[in-house]
Design a protein around this nucleic acid. Structure first.
Lengths: 129, 129
DNA sequence: ATGAGGGTTCCAGTCAGGGGAAGGTCAAGA
DNA sequence: TCTTGACCTTCCCCTGACTGGAACCCTCAT
């Protein structure tokens, strides 16, 4: 398979696939003409990576997850711990964003949104008290 | 005021303040020795920026907000619209993260987390069906 | 005179790729 | 056979919003 094939079959842009090779996540062979030559296992890995990235795991997490996946003697506890730490980070981010949203929502509600200059949003940002 | 003073009074790192000058958000004067020389208005602007950034506005949004703030004849509708668009982006991000969290939460719950290799998290990532 | 603790500029790195240029390769059609 | 167009390759710069560090200057106290 050429890169275009794995790209459409994995859903990942060709650029991303090259990047993943660059950072050592995959190691496709090369054809005589210099083109990357992907095996089914490469495609499988790319799909794995795509799903892990879609769950928000960092590239380094993905590297670790792939290593665990390929390690037949892994302990599921290691996988679970990684996932739980990631989950905690997501939760923290959600909480941050919710706090932002709540504040902003209050401010937006209080703003007339008309042609007059008076604006509680700007008042708040400028440090009104 | 030197940069250290505005840094501690605004809560922004000196590096950040220099960066804000670099991109034209503030324009402090210079003392004879080449040091930046901040007026109260600069401090006020930095505080404004700090609060806007804390609400998740991008630097470009901040630039617009500052311009609106300084424009006595602004319409609050312009401020409100900017804030609402930002709010929508925050909402979308929250929704994305919640979807990740829910999926991940399911997977984590299903994982024994012991010394055995069997792991539903890896199974899912590898495309089990 | 020296040392600590300010300040200055400039360069490089972060994260996970995206955009685009310059050029090589391949299969099909005229 | 030639050409066209769709692939593929590497290379380098760009993103946002800073952060870290090097190398150097200024000021004040000891």
């Amino acid at each position: 398979m050429n890169i275009g094939d794995v790209s459409s079959r994995s859903g990942l842009p060709a650029k991303t696939i090259r990047y993943y090779e660059d950072i050592g996540l995959i190691k496709p062979h090369r054809s005589a003409n210099g083109y990357r030559c992907f095996a089914e296992t490469d495609l499988h890995k790319l799909a794995f990576l795509g799903r892990a990235r879609a769950l928000g795991f960092t590239i380094e997490d993905c590297r670790t997850l792939m290593a665990l996946y390929e390690d037949e003697s892994r302990a599921s506890a290691d996988v679970k711990q990684l996932a739980q730490e990631h989950l905690a980070k997501i939760q923290a981010k959600i909480a941050d964003l919710q706090a932002m949203r709540d504040t902003l929502d209050e401010l937006v509600k209080g703003c007339a949104g008309d042609s007059r200059p008076d604006c509680p949003i700007l008042k708040d940002l400028s440090g009104k008290r």
